[in-house]
Design a protein around this nucleic acid. Structure first.
Lengths: 151, 151
DNA sequence: CCTAATCAGTTGCATGCGCAACTAAAATCC
DNA sequence: GGATTTTAGTTGCGCATGCAACTGATTAGG
């Protein structure tokens, strides 16, 4: 009576699983970050990367994180307005800015890391430590394939 | 000279990897689906699920796919306008609609599956078949944790 | 030098999404 | 059976994002 149409459950489903898990995780993180003035999007990712690489410019972040440069510009602007990032004109390049974490950001880093760890622990709580490592490893391989591919 | 701030690369990074891979994948799929009138978002996911479960209602899709019910409503509306979905009022429930794939959708299904498989192949091309199965398995475990958790 | 091409960053626009508030139909309770 | 509560779906709103077009600075070619 109903059309058959069976997608083999193991084919092509990775995207949809990624999408679903990511969506769930995003919602949780948005709630967690709200009290700290970190906006709903992926601002925390930018913040982490500025903490990791003080002095980085927006273009580098855009390439590393695979966002659109407009998204980077707006996220950084919000982080600046929220007091987490200091934008200094690059002395050697009149077009670029160098991004630094503020004192507020540096003091916030342990909390940020903690919040992320909490969510991560919830996410992987059904995995053994070995499985978690496996998963990270596999995801990193996918990530590299994305970077090369670009077709 | 620069602040230390090293996030251990294997802790808490799953979310960011998921986010990045998902973002890349989304962009590719948007391009692929454009010629077929499938909008930029996750419409194809709804379409797949209506193909899988003809007669399903929106609420069920919302719960299964973990979208917001508003998102479901709008995606289904667009799929209807694009001619892929037929909305019939549920004879037993005056509030609900039963969603059916149109002929166009049924004819499109092989193509859809093919497009998804192509993207999937690109994504997992650096993985052995065994690793791909492992990955799917691990992601499904995460997905289940999301469903339970909800805290 | 002066022009052309490239590059860092910003802004306008369209779209997608989640939340909250709403409508209308069931279901529950008395 | 009438009032309350729950449920399926819609709409208003705000925000995040990608693309394309833009500005202004830098580099390359002549």
């Amino acid at each position: 009576m109903t059309a058959p149409s069976h997608f083999p459950p193991q084919q092509d489903s990775i995207s949809r699983l990624l999408s679903k898990i990511h969506r769930h995780q995003q919602k949780q993180l948005v709630k967690k970050f709200q009290p700290y003035g970190l906006g709903g999007g992926h601002q925390y990712i930018f913040l982490i990367n500025v903490l990791k690489m003080p002095g980085v410019n927006q273009d580098r972040l855009t390439c590393d994180l695979k966002f659109d440069k407009a998204t980077t510009a707006r996220s950084i602007k919000q982080l600046e307005e929220a007091g987490y990032i200091d934008r200094q004109p690059d002395p050697h390049d009149g077009r670029a800015y160098r991004l630094y974490p503020t004192v507020k950001a540096i003091e916030f880093e342990p909390t940020l890391r903690d919040l992320l760890m909490q969510e991560n622990r919830k996410l992987v709580r059904a995995l053994s430590e070995e499985e978690e490592m496996q998963l990270i490893n596999l995801l990193q391989i996918l990530d590299h394939s994305c970077e090369e591919a670009d077709g």
